[in-house]
Computed example of a mutant assay.
Amino acid sequence: MDKVQADPGHSAWYIERFRDLAAAGHDIVGEARAIDAMVPRRARVLDAGCGAGRNSGHLHRVGHTVVGVDVDPALIAAAGQDHPGPQWLVEDLAELDLPAHGIPEPFDVILCAGNVMTFLAPSTRTEVLRRFHRHLAPGGRAVVGFGAGRGYPFDRFLADAGDAGLVPDLLLSTWDLRPFRQDSDFLVAVLSAVTSAPS
């Protein structure tokens, strides 16, 4: 929310940007298609940092049970307007506790796209990843994607994930499944939960 406070028009710009891209026929759900390929029909999906709901909406339309969470009330309002079907919740990912909101868990997969991890306060990153771990079903996976050069080096992220009890199954450089290399400028990490997360 620091970004929104610094630029009060940011949320409205972001909402309209994706509405305009969708209206122009652009592909705005590549992340959702990748997630859909990883899970069976009717999977439980948590979209963490869902923004205005583009990925949650697609995953709901193809048959999954979806909960979308974002800290920005304006984005959640737009998500509910544009993408009826998923359950929407305004919540800070560092305080994520869905059972406290009456939302059943666990989830088969958690999607965290849109560079969300790089917008978090550095002091909360490992806690957010711990919260992901706590909300995953046995055998579930968290899929996190973000770009390089945003103040969160990939090796630091993977170390934080390990501290949170999440281990990499697969590292990709794009949402269309291109392999990750040391010089990749984007990371899509498919992470599995180990038996118990460190406290």
Rank of each mutant, 00 (worst) to 15 (best):
Q5F: 13
D108W: 03
P84Q: 06
G57L: 11
R178G: 13
R134L: 14
T195W: 02
V67P: 04
A77M: 07
G49C: 07
A74P: 01
P153T: 10
E105K: 10
C112Y: 08
A137F: 12
F154Y: 07
A22I: 05
D72M: 09
Q81Y: 01
A22R: 15
A37C: 00
V194S: 14
L177F: 11
A142L: 10
A22D: 09
V45Q: 06
R134D: 11
V67H: 04
D163Q: 15
E127K: 14
R178L: 13
W88N: 06
A37S: 14
R181Q: 11
T174A: 14
L93P: 01
R41W: 00
G114K: 03
G140F: 07
D92M: 01
A32T: 12
D27Q: 08
Q87H: 12
R42A: 15
G139H: 06
T126N: 02
G151P: 05
V116C: 02
P106S: 14
K3Q: 14
Q182C: 03
R141N: 08
E31A: 12
A22Q: 10
S56K: 04
R19P: 02
R54T: 03
S56N: 11
D36Y: 10
F119K: 02
D155N: 13
K3S: 09
A100P: 05
E105M: 12
F146S: 03
N115V: 05
A79S: 08
P198K: 12
I76C: 06
A100Q: 15
N115S: 09
V116T: 14
F119Q: 07
S199Q: 12
D2Q: 13
P153Y: 07
V71N: 02
M1Q: 11
H83I: 02
M117N: 03
L187W: 06
F18A: 01
Y152Q: 08
R125Y: 01
G147L: 00
D82N: 14
A148K: 11
T65W: 10
G162V: 06
A74F: 08
R19H: 07
A78M: 06
H58W: 13
P73W: 12
K3E: 15
A148T: 01
N115H: 06
F132G: 01
A193R: 10
V71W: 00
G149M: 05
L98H: 04
V62K: 05
A79W: 03
R42F: 13
D47I: 15
E105V: 15
L96H: 01
H83T: 04
M117H: 04
M38D: 11
S192C: 00
Y152E: 11
D72I: 09
N55C: 14
V109C: 13
P99N: 07
Q87E: 10
A137R: 12
R131A: 02
T118H: 00
S184N: 10
C112I: 03
G102H: 09
V143R: 04
V45P: 11
L98Y: 09
D7F: 15
S184E: 07
